[in-house]
Write a protein that binds this DNA or RNA. Structure first.
Lengths: 346, 346
DNA sequence: CCGCGCTGTGTAATCGTTTACAGTATCGGC
DNA sequence: GCCGATACTGTAAACGATTACACAGCGCGG
């Protein structure tokens, strides 16, 4: 800095009052007499004073910041949630710190340290793969009221969670396909060990059974929410001797990879095979064919989580249990009735 | 917090030394004798001490944080850059603050205030639409050595910029199309007033002229880097009495919207019309057809900007002028020689 | 044996706020 | 004219780190 920034002392001197008064004007204006107040405000303007956050934070024992732990910043799914979170904290003067857990080493200490460090007041965790010890550490220091999980969670931990109704989404997907006439339905899962993978797979399998659809073991294909995994699944499907007529993908990105792969192998979507995704990312509407999918309102999820955390920080109370957020089937062009005169399997 | 966190005093007491010594062990271990050092380290372990960032920041007059101003967190283009930035700051103990300038009010004060507030030490700006006054304010307080622009910039301001060679990218795109035999080339621009819009449009127009290609005014279509604007452009193109045979889009997202729109209107890509994008986002490889595009290495751009800023903060010197970062033509399936027996214009 | 330099440690000031507590007017009621 | 309440404002002590400066002990050359 070329010239040292003005401090509260400079303002006090300039306004001929004590620093206490200046501070009061800033934080409890009603406690100081009107004439003084305006004098101080003028002095603030004159000096260009801005409160020093570090000093305030030290004094108040807080950080004025929250941390968002996100598995992979680069994925559109997460980034739109982030946008919601950012929006949710807009106007709150909390700073939003973001940490990409895939690109930054995250140990059991990361979260607790940030609290102890006085770096953050709260956290939103989008990563269900967090080491369990990290949560134990948080609880040990009483931070469990200041952490909310979003979209994902850690099984068996009693932290507040805000997440979509994944099982119902899977149900809706299967029901939609079945209503179109499909009985041979495959599924491309998320990565093993992921809570969403489990919820969606189970929802899918349950509904498929309920509707007495065929179920072959190789119709459950392992994926990892990525384009590439969808593309790879396409190869497997193309090579099957008995192909499914519809595929429910655990994420839109997977569906895109899958469709691209099927297309390269000569299968048309939805003419030869129907594909349904999960998430409804922005692209889905403009893919060719436009993707039928299960919509999660990510912007809203992010905003909601931010609101929840803000409230928790202000009241000092833990957010209550949140009901699963409803998801919605969006029918577009990638699903259609099965082709009865299929080129290979009539 | 259930139990108050240990302070440097607790450690000092536990190790039977002064706080000065503890502090030295933390920051200049070589200045304290070996036996003392281990005693202190043991005490730190015993007490579970973590340094209080707020206190340290206050004393050292810094924030240990950087701010990233991003136009729209939700767009995959930006989020991948963010991932690179996050990676670039990994292991540095700088916190990375992110602000979505579309969803948060950004005034002329925002940036300067964050500096004055002692909230940030530096900033990476991805938004060329920043009010000019914001920069003036930064310069006035000597912060111009701690701001780097990334991808975009503000025309006429002498802040360090790291950006792709946009003009060359546009040239390469046009050259590629021309080499395939196209002479009727259209362009969908970015939003008016954007520096990238200008650079790419000019690069495109210049090269088109150099290659003596046709140039109709209505072949330059206004867009805004969004899917929707591509989709809208498709309607315009479908309605033209003389259609271009190839379209250079200012962003991959635009290209996707365009292709979807053309497809809906009955035109096939690349059979009836070629489309080339800009950016090479992850999706592009898996779109149908796979998108020919100009690749910007966003992860690397982000990392690079982070490194630049870190160096500037550590040395206290402004980052030097950075040469434009080369871009690369990636040929995929959305471009092909023009169809000589076009359904409408033979 | 003195004085110097070196090494290692402690003392205390400092960073810029907030706020408990104390102090001073002013006013009304008696 | 005195007392108490009320309404402001000031004094000074935190918050938890870093570091200039002082000081103690030791070894060594003269």
């Amino acid at each position: 800095m070329i010239q040292k920034a003005a401090t509260i002392h400079d303002v006090a001197r300039s306004a001929n009052v004590s620093t206490a008064t200046v501070s009061r004007v800033l934080t409890h204006p009603e406690r100081v007499a009107e004439p003084t107040r305006t004098m101080v405000r003028d002095a603030i303007r004159r000096t260009g004073y801005r409160v020093n956050q570090a000093a305030r934070n030290l004094r108040l024992q807080r950080a004025n910041a929250v941390l968002v732990l996100v598995p992979n910043l680069g994925k559109p799914f997460y980034s739109e949630i982030l946008a919601g979170i950012s929006e949710g904290f807009s106007g709150s003067d909390y700073a939003v710190l973001i940490l990409d857990t895939e690109r930054n080493p995250v140990t059991e200490r990361t979260l607790a340290d940030n609290f102890l460090n006085n770096r953050i007041d709260g956290a939103i965790v989008l990563d269900g793969g967090l080491p369990r010890a990290a949560l134990t550490a948080c609880r040990a220091m009483g931070a469990q009221t200041r952490v909310v999980f979003l979209c994902e969670w850690v099984e068996g931990e009693r932290f507040p969670v805000l997440a979509s109704d994944n099982a119902d989404g899977a149900r809706q997907a299967v029901r939609h396909l079945n209503a179109l006439g499909h009985t041979k339905i495959a599924h491309i899962t998320g990565p093993e060990g992921n809570v969403l993978t489990a919820a969606r797979r189970e929802g899918m399998v349950t509904e498929r059974t309920r509707l007495s659809c065929a179920a072959r073991a190789d119709w459950i294909l392992r994926g990892d929410f990525s384009l590439k995994s969808g593309h790879e699944a396409a190869q497997k499907i193309l090579a099957m001797d008995e192909r499914p007529t519809a595929v429910f993908c655990s994420a839109d990105m997977v569906a895109f990879g899958l469709i691209a792969g099927l297309h390269a192998g000569g299968l048309r979507v939805p003419d030869d095979i129907s594909v349904i995704g999960f998430d409804d990312i922005e692209m889905s509407e403009f893919y060719v064919p436009a993707l039928t999918t299960i919509r999660q309102d990510r912007l809203r999820l992010g905003r909601r989580a931010a609101t929840l955390l803000r409230a928790a920080l202000e009241n000092g109370t833990a957010p209550g249990d949140e009901p699963p957020v409803p998801v919605e089937l969006v029918v577009r062009a990638s699903t259609a009735p099965p082709n009865t005169r299929s080129p290979r399997h009539g």
